[in-house]
Design a protein around this nucleic acid. Structure first.
Length: 874
RNA sequence: GGACGCAUAGCUCAGCUGGUUAGAGCGCUCGCCUCACACGCGAGAGGUCUUGGGUUCGAGUCCCGAUGUGUCCACCA
């Protein structure tokens, strides 16, 4: 802590220095320790293309809270950091950069392209890592990994080969989603559907024999170039007679059959569907059932290809226009109907996806999904909140094969080679020299790379050294908690689960903690296009990392979205400042005194109370953390520190500190130090910097709060009676303050205070507190007082009088007492009704009944007191 | 079409397994430069917990329905 003890906390002065201190101390580094239980988190690797955004900030904060807490609890806590090569996103950026130079991928070739990509990675990949550090993340940077590094690549090849050998990876011509902009296939999960305006074009296809037409409708007329049949429902009376007949495809002239298939909905449109197996997933299935031809009419850029006759070379939309015109001209267009329909777009670039038949690699999902579903059902992996398990089940149960090959260069190249001589496919961990079938040496590796998510699916074990049998893998796997947003359950979480179960024989993590999105102040999603994103680094610069972290951890609950607002960060910043000043106060009072962080032998009433309260707080906070209720834990710490410790305990401690009695003062100092420093420990996971700074500035043992022992509930610090007594005194103080405020008496005006209570002992002990906090210059305590013209104040345990006759408005005072009486009577009636209720007495638990009984008794007393006050007023 | 979330003070949100008079932050009102802090202190106002049923001795909390709102999945051409 700086010598000057600035009035306000200056995070900028503290953060970098402390982070460096932690790094130098190697506190983030985890080494296997058989004496300790492991606690492991793997980071959701941010894309190397990325910049830190609020979503990351939230995600990292939650992970850091958990890791720091477990580390303090004595676990061997490991948080593995790393980044994702983000195949499609990175490649797009590099292609774009090259475009500005007037270059294309194809021009410079694969090797040169990859060289550029790696350079790009070196340049920008580290950026986000540095940003993560600004948040205070306690990752083990010695273990930083990259999805495309040597080890991860080895894991990828191993998994690919294993799955291939088990028949779970195959290559085939299937219909896939094609992005004409990225020029690659993408998986089903990577297509985003949205409703758009479109048209329903009603066409008629003539029968070959000239006996008329069949009318049908389509939203994509250009695909008609690839039609190989027209289908109707087998039970549709209207069309049954046409099944088996032949139609002439307009514009193309191809003869196509009318087939019957149950896929057709009789009630939709005309009940007749054109079948384009090459460009529609459902049509593809129909085609398989009926052995129809598959005519691909589109190239990889979305233009009509050579199969499109006179339309060849036209971009899809242009062809659509021309085809509609031609159909109209030739009398095949019946009508055009505007409709809204859902269109799939590439989740990376937003381009409309074209379903297209193409030869790709797939993972056979059904056999992998079963065990992955069971693992969650058996509770091996739990979702928090658990409703997300349902989403997971639903997805897994309806899963289709996963298209994993991408027509990209930046990524893990598919470990498959094709023999030029005999056509054999060789899938191997390392490049084969000769073809195992024909002995030929001319082998070409598949040019495609794997879906980025293929490698991230292996992250929880590839980062621990798999496929080698490493001691780390043995010790740290399965990991404990995975923290991520709900938007990524399908892409990543589900795939990690089936990969872990399949490859490791065990789930990759025990708990998935799901959080929501950080939205802007108005509740909108933060996005680049809206320009409403808020830069966490800027917030850190302005308010400090602790304030940002605290704000992100508070005021929301798992799985729900939250709104970011400057006001909230300011509130957290103010909290940091409050902490800072409490510490500053304690430090000031320690000056010139040797004070240990050890509680005194004898404890005053207020000491017992604050220890009791701290004890409960420690217990509850720990409990909340166990249940992933981070927001509640943070809130409790906020309340304890601000409302109890600062507002009451510190104020009360001033009595002894300034008493002139050195023994008393020293006793107070010790309690202040102990409670403050212990509270810093509880708060450390949330606000690591300021707590470290303060902890070190107070008397302490050990080098860093980071590795200090997490405070635990301590039987020896239970003082329920003292707490009860303190609450009575505090009630009295509050009641006096309340009255004085109502009467507009400034604190500078000190008054006499008479206090009558059935058990005056408590208040005798509390006299100095009443004097100081209730602004009394003299307190008299007794069983009964008879005063003329005094203000009467009633609490559940005492009756107080302030003889300030001249200040009192008798009428107002009477009205106030009457109101208070009414309220007390109302409460009493409720309690009495319960006690009269035989059902309640019989069925409610004893402690609840007892509570109500006590409450009723107290209310009766209070009512009597108020009533006597009213009598006296009159 | 299917599934799910949310609806609590003017605003943003907590409220775990049902149990005294429902909480916080911000905002608002009143009063304070009280020797740690005006990024503060003290006091206060403000809620029929969306709605209709039900279960229970007791419901913001559990069940069923309605309304509003948001999200995800499916993708009938």
């Amino acid at each position: 802590m700086s010598r000057e003890l600035a009035k306000t906390y200056n995070p900028g002065e503290v953060e970098d220095r402390i982070y460096r201190f932690w790094l130098d101390g190697k506190y983030f580094h985890a080494e296997r320790d058989p004496q300790k239980k492991p606690y492991t988190i793997v980071i959701p690797p941010p894309n190397i293309t990325g910049q830190l955004h609020m979503g990351h900030a939230l995600d990292e904060t939650l992970q850091d809270v958990l890791v720091r807490w477990r580390r303090m609890q004595g676990y061997c806590a490991l948080w593995i950091p790393g980044t994702d090569h983000a195949s499609i996103a990175t490649e797009a950026k590099i292609v774009e950069a090259m475009r500005r130079e007037g270059l294309t991928k194809e021009q410079i070739g694969r090797d040169a392209f990859l060289e550029r990509a790696w350079k790009w990675k070196e340049k920008y990949g580290g950026r986000i890592v540095e940003q993560l550090k600004k948040l205070g993340s306690s990752c083990d940077w010695d273990r930083e990994r990259f999805t495309l590094d040597e080890g991860c690549s080895k894991a990828v090849r191993e998994v690919f080969v294993r799955l291939y050998e088990k028949g779970l990876i195959y290559r085939g011509k299937r219909i896939i989603n094609w992005c004409p902009h990225c020029k690659t296939s993408i998986s089903d999960a990577e297509v985003e559907f949205s409703e758009r305006d479109g048209f329903f074009w009603h066409l008629r296809y003539p029968f070959k024999d000239g006996s008329g037409y069949l009318e049908l409708a389509t939203t994509r007329p250009e695909t008609m170039l690839g039609d190989t049949a027209v289908a109707v429902h087998p039970d549709d009376e209207r069309y049954r007679k046409f099944v088996g007949k032949t139609l002439i495809l307009p514009l193309v002239g191809r003869e196509i059959p009318v087939i019957a298939d149950e896929y057709v909905e009789r009630d939709f449109g005309t009940g007749v569907v054109k079948i384009t197996p090459a460009h529609d997933p459902n049509d593809f299935e129909v085609g398989l059932r009926h052995h129809l031809g598959v005519i691909n009419v589109m190239d990889d850029a979305g233009n009509i290809n050579e199969n499109g006759g006179k339309y060849a070379g036209m971009p899809g939309l242009e062809a659509r226009k021309k085809i509609v015109d031609d159909l109209k001209e030739q009398g095949y267009l019946v009508r055009t109907e505007p409709i809204k329909h859902n269109v799939g777009a590439c989740y990376r670039c937003g381009t409309i996806v074209e379903p297209r038949v193409s030869k790709q690699w797939f993972v056979r999902m059904k056999p992998l999904a079963g065990p992955a579903i069971r693992a969650v059902q058996e509770g091996k992996t739990k979702f928090v909140p658990d409703r997300f398990a349902k989403i997971y089940y639903h997805w897994m149960e309806n899963i289709k094969d996963w298209c994993i090959s991408r027509q990209l260069w930046w990524g893990h190249r598919i470990p498959a080679w094709y023999c030029r001589d005999c056509g054999e496919t060789v899938v191997a961990r390392e490049a084969p020299r000769v073809c195992p079938k024909c002995g030929g040496t001319r082998l070409d590796q598949d040019p495609d790379t794997l879906d980025t998510w293929f490698s991230s699916a292996l992250w929880p074990f590839s980062t621990l050294g798999w496929p080698d049998k490493t001691p780390d893998l043995d010790y740290f796997y399965p990991t404990d908690t995975l923290v991520t947003g709900y938007d990524i359950i399908f892409f990543w979480v589900a795939r990690m689960i089936f990969s872990g179960v399949e490859q490791m024989g065990d789930v990759p993590f025990h708990t998935v903690l799901i959080h929501g999105l950080v939205r802007d102040e108005q509740g909108r999603k933060m996005s680049k296009s809206l320009g409403n994103g808020i830069d966490p680094l800027q917030v850190i610069g302005e308010y400090g990392a602790d304030a940002l972290r605290f704000m992100l951890a508070t005021g929301n609950s798992p799985g729900n979205d939250m709104r970011f607002s400057d006001d909230k960060v300011q509130a957290s910043r103010n909290f940091a400042n409050k902490i800072w000043n409490a510490a500053r106060f304690i430090r000031m009072n320690l000056e010139g005194h040797e004070t240990e962080n050890r509680l005194p032998e004898t404890l005053a009433l207020e000491d017992q109370w604050i220890l009791d309260s701290f004890n409960n707080t420690a217990k509850e906070v720990t409990d909340n953390l166990e249940h992933f209720e981070l927001g509640i834990a943070a809130q409790k710490l906020y309340d304890f520190l601000w409302d109890e410790f600062c507002d009451w305990y510190i104020e009360i401690s001033k009595i002894r500190l300034n008493s002139g009695d050195e023994a008393e003062a020293q006793s107070a100092r010790r309690v202040l130090v102990w409670v403050m420093s212990s509270t810093m420990q509880l708060l450390h996971p949330f606000m690591p910097y300021i707590t470290e700074e303060i902890w070190q500035a107070l008397p302490h043992g050990g080098e860093s709060i980071m590795v200090s022992r997490w405070p635990e509930f301590d039987e020896a610090h239970c003082f329920p009676e003292a707490a009860e007594e303190m609450h009575r005194i505090m009630d009295a103080v509050r009641a006096v303050r309340n009255r004085r405020a109502e009467m507009n008496v400034p604190p500078s005006r000190r008054t006499h205070l008479y206090l009558a209570a059935a058990s005056p002992e408590t208040f005798r002990k509390g006299t100095p507190i009443l004097k100081r906090l209730a602004w009394a210059n003299k307190v008299e305590i007794g069983k009964e007082f008879r005063l003329d013209g005094a203000v009467t104040i009633v609490t559940p345990d005492a009756k107080l009088y302030i003889p300030t006759d001249e200040l009192v408005d008798r009428k107002a005072e009477l009205a106030r007492l009457t109101k208070e009486l009414e309220s007390a009577k109302k409460q009493q009636a409720t309690a009495q009704a319960k006690l009269r209720n035989q059902q309640f007495l019989a069925k409610a638990p004893a402690n609840v009944v007892e509570g109500v009984r006590q409450n009723a008794a107290k209310l009766a007393e209070q009512i009597a007191l108020i009533e006597s006050g009213i009598r006296e007023m009159k």
